[in-house]
Amino acid sequence: MRSKYLHEEIYRGAGEVTKLAEPLVAVCGAGALGSNLVDNLARQGFLQLRVVDFDRVDQHNVSTQAYGVADVGAPKVDVLRNQVFRAAEVELDAVDKKLDERNVRKLLKGADLVVDTFDNSASRQLVQQHCREAGVECLHVGLYADYCEAVWDEFYRVPADAEGDVCEYPLARNLVLLAVAVASELLVRYVLAGEKENYSGTLRDFAVKPLGF
């Protein structure tokens, strides 16, 4: 029987895809970025995945997140755990808790890589502080309107929160998927070759460019 990662193995090499199964990757946030990113990583060969989020699926999440109408009301991490197992038989470590200063060390314990996909500055700062103190590599992924970026922690500055309701802002699904593709590739390149690259993307001109830090 052919491997479920056949196309990735042909592209990268079977031995390379095997390496993706080694690190424990903790994804902070299971919203538009986090949910699609976890699903994508599982389908690429990452087998040790943890996702931390306390939110439940809402109706407005369906267009940009990896959830469906039938999931509305359910904890996001539970839906994602079931979805990832059905898709790739990957056992997701689903943590249905709000990450805060009291539990951040416990919830991110053992992670080899942390991915910050939170949508507010306080949570991003908390993740950044923990990763710097613990010496854990962290990739921050963010987006707004037409722009997205994926930046390794040593080059990252936590932005101020946008005004208004965090759930009500302009966002195209295609920008989310563009950001997920960029972040996924940066994680793969880091695990396989130790490369740290930072990229931004804009949807209107469909441009993905390296950030010149």
Rank of each mutant, 00 (worst) to 15 (best):
A207P: 02
A14H: 04
E149L: 03
D146Q: 10
N120C: 05
A122C: 01
V90F: 10
K4I: 11
A94V: 11
E195P: 02
R189G: 03
V176F: 06
L139H: 08
V127Q: 00
R81M: 08
V136L: 03
V52A: 08
V79D: 08
V62L: 13
A181Q: 13
V182Y: 01
F54Q: 09
A30F: 01
E168C: 08
D165M: 10
L113Y: 03
A162Y: 12
K98H: 12
S121F: 14
S63I: 14
E137Y: 01
R86P: 00
V95Q: 14
L99G: 01
D165H: 11
A30L: 02
N120R: 13
E16M: 11
Q125I: 00
D58Y: 01
D119Q: 12
K98Y: 10
D161E: 09
V104T: 08
A207N: 09
F46C: 08
R157F: 06
M1P: 13
L126R: 02
G13P: 07
C148E: 07
Q128L: 14
N174C: 05
F206H: 09
A30Q: 05
A21S: 15
R189D: 15
V115H: 05
D116Y: 01
C28G: 06
F118R: 10
L143N: 04
A181R: 08
V180C: 11
G13E: 11
D96C: 10
G73T: 11
E154M: 03
Q129L: 08
S121H: 13
E9Q: 15
H130M: 00
E137T: 03
E22P: 00
R2P: 14
A32H: 04
D146C: 03
A88C: 10
S200E: 13
E89W: 10
A183V: 03
M1N: 08
L33P: 03
L171C: 13
D58T: 14
E149Q: 14
E133Y: 06
V95L: 09
R56C: 12
Q48R: 15
S3R: 07
S63L: 10
P210K: 09
R157N: 09
P170G: 07
A179M: 09
P159L: 06
L47M: 13
Y190V: 02
V51Y: 12
F46G: 06
D55Y: 09
Y144G: 01
L37D: 03
K19C: 06
W152G: 02
A14Y: 11
L126W: 01
D71M: 10
S184A: 15
H130Y: 15
G142C: 04
F155M: 05
K209E: 14
R157A: 14
Q48M: 07
A94Q: 12
G45W: 06
L113F: 00
F85L: 02
Q44W: 05
L49A: 07
K209F: 14
G201S: 02
E168T: 12
A94P: 07
V90E: 07
D112G: 15
N198S: 15
R132E: 15
E89I: 04
Y156M: 05
V69M: 14
Q125F: 00
M1H: 13
D112N: 15
K209A: 15
H60A: 05
D112P: 03
V188G: 01
E195N: 07
K97I: 02
L108P: 01
S123L: 04
L37W: 05
V114H: 01
L99Q: 02
Q125P: 00
Y169P: 00
V72D: 04
V176T: 11
D93E: 14
L80K: 11
Y144V: 14
R204F: 09
L107G: 02
V95M: 08
